Amino acid sequence: MHVAFFVDQVFWREGPVLSTEESFILFPASFAGFVDQITFIGREAPTPGRAPYVLDGSTFSLCALPFYPNLYKLWRADPRMYRRIRESVREQSKNWDVLVICGPHPIGQLVARMCIAQGIPVVLMVRQNLIEQMSAHRGLERHAAMLAAHLLEWDFKRLARDRTVFAVGEEMTKVYSRFCNRAHNHFPCLVDRAQFEMFSQMSAGSDPRRLIKVCRLAPEKGHRFLFEAMAQLNQRGLHCHVDLVGTGAMDQELRELASKLGVASQVTFHGYVPYGRPLFDLYEKAGAMVLSSTTEGFPQVINEALSIGLPTVATTVGGIPSFLTDGETALLVPPRDVRALAGAIEKMVRAPELRERLRRNGRALMQDNILEVNRARVLGGVHDEIARRRA
């Protein structure tokens, strides 16, 4: 079976080796050994190089799309780019048995319609609530982003009719269940069995006041609410420290905000930290993981935290509340609720028996949701969609 995956990622070439900088690629790449060939449909970097996540081997190939930095630049791109995309897809899709499209995405939906016209089965994967994600933007950019998001999601739902859909989280699964009768709740866990065993040998730090947050420095990640919660905790005499791992356009703005709120000395901006021992060392120093996002799909760092036994405080967005149980596998709070976030952090810091329960239950939950389990679910849906179309 030859599976094509549309992923809105940039790929680098170094000789015959493909690589990318986004960890999600590890999930579709894990299909190697269960299918004959995997073609990724994505942007090719304008210069040779190697990114952190390497796809080495004859199983993988790239249907290269013209490079564009991001979706905002895509709207202003040369119209001839779409013709080049169609030509590339038309040539390579002759060999595809099925297309899995991660969306909503304008190029992905163009590719999907081309495949449908050729009789190629199409499976949809909804990784996040796009409208919620775009609502985090500000100013005039927000209005344009929201309009585009509504149009794309409306079109993606049209594509979903009478097709198999894997949606991250119960909320998005219910939304797409109105348009098809094969919508599945999906958690794209990247922690495989070997990694789970490795993480299980690690342990959280001894100081619960030392927090860690791993994500992009972007508006929808809700750093502001965490800083405000830390300022509230200071007033109660509870001083926490957060290791902030990630890069993004808000770096300087967040530094200034931390200073304004009086928590600058309690925040360490680590920037980009490579996956592996440098990141794991920070995990083992931390007493808890905190995620204060206003929108999410399902963050991979939660899977890593649960596997390590790192108590987690998270917001009830995306797939998080349908995977985690408040008080049992994590502490969950509403998004944008500073008081609730501060209260959850204080509760976790002051209750060692609660932290131990979260550690124990989190690891047990992960045992039943490692990569191999989720891969089997998606592969089953892909095979069923192919068989149904052939019938």
Rank of each mutant, 00 (worst) to 15 (best):
H2R: 11
F6D: 03
V10L: 08
G15T: 10
S23T: 11
I25T: 09
A45D: 12
P46E: 08
T47I: 14
G49M: 02
R50G: 01
V54K: 04
L55T: 03
S61A: 15
C63T: 02
P66G: 04
Y68M: 10
N70V: 08
K73L: 12
D78V: 12
P79H: 12
Y82V: 04
E87T: 13
R90W: 06
E91H: 15
G103N: 00
H105N: 15
H105G: 09
L110V: 03
R113Y: 02
M114S: 07
C115G: 00
Q118V: 07
G119H: 12
V123Y: 02
V126M: 06
Q128G: 13
Q128I: 10
N129A: 12
Q133C: 00
H137C: 09
H143L: 14
H143Q: 13
A144V: 13
H150N: 14
E153T: 07
F156T: 05
F156W: 11
K157T: 09
L159D: 10
T164C: 14
V168D: 04
E170A: 01
E170Y: 05
E171I: 11
T173M: 11
K174F: 14
Y176D: 05
F179I: 12
N181E: 15
R182E: 14
H184S: 03
N185K: 13
H186Y: 15
F187V: 04
F187D: 00
S200L: 01
Q201K: 15
Q201T: 15
Q201V: 11
A204Q: 10
R210T: 04
R210Y: 04
K213F: 05
V214E: 00
K221H: 03
G222C: 11
R224T: 07
A231H: 03
G237S: 11
L238N: 05
C240Q: 02
G246R: 00
L257K: 03
A258Y: 05
K260M: 07
R277M: 12
P278F: 09
P278M: 04
F280I: 13
G287A: 12
G287P: 10
S292V: 03
T295V: 10
T295D: 09
G297V: 02
I308Q: 14
P311F: 08
T312N: 06
V313H: 09
T315H: 11
I320P: 07
L324W: 07
L324G: 01
G327H: 01
G327D: 06
L331C: 13
L332V: 08
P334F: 01
A342C: 08
K347I: 01
M348L: 15
L354T: 01
L354K: 10
R355D: 06
E356P: 03
E356I: 02
R357W: 10
R360H: 09
G362S: 04
R363A: 05
R363P: 00
N369T: 02
N374R: 15
N374L: 05
G381A: 08
V382I: 15
D384N: 09
